[in-house]
Design a protein around this nucleic acid. Structure first.
Lengths: 301, 301
DNA sequence: CCGTTGCGATACCTGAGCGGTATCGTTCCG
DNA sequence: CGGAACGATACCGCTCAGGTATCGCAACGG
């Protein structure tokens, strides 16, 4: 007689017999007749080359090896259940890993809010944040190292899709000693002859270019006194009295000593936060994340 | 179409397809043709209600859920292998749990030597020592809480078997200030009028009765000045100059200040160590342990 | 003491389902 | 545009899981 490899059937039958201490009782429990049970357990024993049960006039008793195998079998069956559960959860986007690319001032407010909400709704999903500039995000998306990316703006890229997920207002960051600090609102004309700190220096075009185009459309030329890498450095310079800078709403959570934020005139002074993803990514996880993003971030800035 | 429950076959086929990134290649690896593979994987997906693979013109790609299930499947297959290994080891007595009952002075030398040797030969067997007197050992053996018991002697018990596993010589423990401390050997006549400490007080008959019968067979009557519970207490009293006591070779490892051991005349002054076990216990673990006992303890005391 | 009862094992049969061959539809490549 | 390679499908044969009937054995009750 030649037997194939072990199957879950052997484990189910064996554990049922052990738990019922009887072939007949186990057969009832499993809704099969008794002879197949006998046969499967015999096969299992032959397969293992080990006697698992001691057949006695009144029911069966486990051997030492049988006790060991019973524990193992129970464990395997439970793990198989778990495997199915976990797979089905993964299919519904409730389990897995989400790699998110972030860059710029959105990391200070919008992204944390999104992530907090997502973790609450999908606690078994591991979220990994990657600080990558736009080019890095696009490369990582293509190489499947990233599921979504956030950036100030994107251009059309084959195989990728992007949406604007948030409109933010612009604010002027000034030192409290500056006369603007007392103003309720400011407009672009006010800024034209002020010492302006701009960012980011690399990864252009970006936030700065959007800002500059707003100046140009008003036929204004800002006085750029310093270019820095990021918003934190820019605000730090403002804090030291070096000049003014512009910041999105997300940056308002950045509180540095002596720095006051004054809202800029609303008209057209909007800055976008965009989300980019693969066009062919139809995973439930991504869909779930997009839903959370749109639920958390207001449809209108 | 109605499918039964998941089987290991599904896991083996699925993992092979994932690892080969192709149904055809996996089919070769598994020594089956391609169509059954397709069918089993389709069944698996239907069983789970989840799409696991993305069929593409050049081979297959895992979905997110598929990646999760692949990890689970690998794990399950590995654990199944382990389960078989462990069961086979248990059948050979290389894995399991050995409950050993011990009592009296043998715990100081003979038993530790046996256990050390056994642990070396069977490292995956858990050894649990239980300090039980003879009656406790017999009850525990009957209730299967014990595999073997060691004691000074046993009487015939239905369902149980016992063997003498060690003959030990008797020694006289005296204080170094006592004149006997300088003697090379002593005999029973020397002890007749000496203040004798005897043990154990309970669990009779035991060591003390064996000793007393040696006196009586020589028509001697020892001067018992104190009965104590165990050999440690007896030696402690000797250490404080209270009197003499008799101790087996195993007790020689008990070194207390001022205590000197002098061997007793060899003839008939032997004390047995016995091992008791269930008559119906044919486990490989017990057989292995008995072999170690006989290998470690000298066949002649 | 012996018939009864309950256990697991065995013998034999039937059909579901696993694996086989042949072939299809699609996509990629030369 | 024809050929090659992929997975899916159709269909077939045979293995083997599960069914029924029965056996052999041990424990128990009258």
């Amino acid at each position: 007689m030649k037997f194939g490899p072990i199957e879950f059937r052997h484990l189910r039958y064996f554990t049922a017999v052990v738990e019922s201490k009887s072939f007949r009782a186990a057969a009832q429990r499993l809704h099969v007749s008794q002879p197949p049970l006998t046969r499967q357990v015999q096969q299992l024993e032959e397969l293992l080359g080990v006697s698992l049960l001691e057949r006695q006039p009144r029911g069966v008793e486990l051997t030492a090896a049988g006790a060991v195998f019973y524990e193992e079998a129970r464990n395997l069956l439970a793990l198989a259940e778990q495997a199915i559960d976990r797979t089905q959860m993964a299919a519904q986007g409730q389990l897995g890993r989400l790699d998110i690319g972030v860059f710029g001032s959105a990391v200070f407010d919008a992204i944390p809010r999104v992530i907090q909400a997502f973790r609450l709704a999908y606690p078994k999903v591991d979220i990994v944040l990657h600080n990558l500039d736009r080019a890095g995000q696009i490369r990582a998306l293509r190489e499947r190292r990233l599921t979504v990316g956030f950036n100030r703006f994107f251009v059309e890229e084959v195989g990728l899709l992007w949406d604007v997920v948030l409109h933010e207002q612009l604010n002027v960051a000034v030192h409290e000693a500056h006369p603007f600090a007392k103003r309720e609102r400011l407009n672009f004309d006010d800024l034209a002859d002020q010492p302006l700190i701009v960012y980011p220096r690399t990864s252009r075009p970006s936030f700065i270019d959007q800002v500059l185009s707003m100046f140009h459309s008003r036929h204004l030329t800002p006085q750029i006194v310093q270019e820095v890498d990021d918003v934190v450095t820019a605000i730090a310079l403002v804090s030291s009295g070096f000049g003014l800078t512009l910041a999105s709403d997300s940056a308002l959570t950045l509180r540095l000593p002596g720095v006051v934020y004054v809202p800029l005139e609303v008209t057209e002074a909007q800055i976008d936060l965009c989300m980019i993803r693969r066009a062919d990514d139809e995973s439930a996880l991504l869909r779930a994340f997009i839903n959370v993003v749109h639920a958390v971030l207001p449809p209108r800035g």
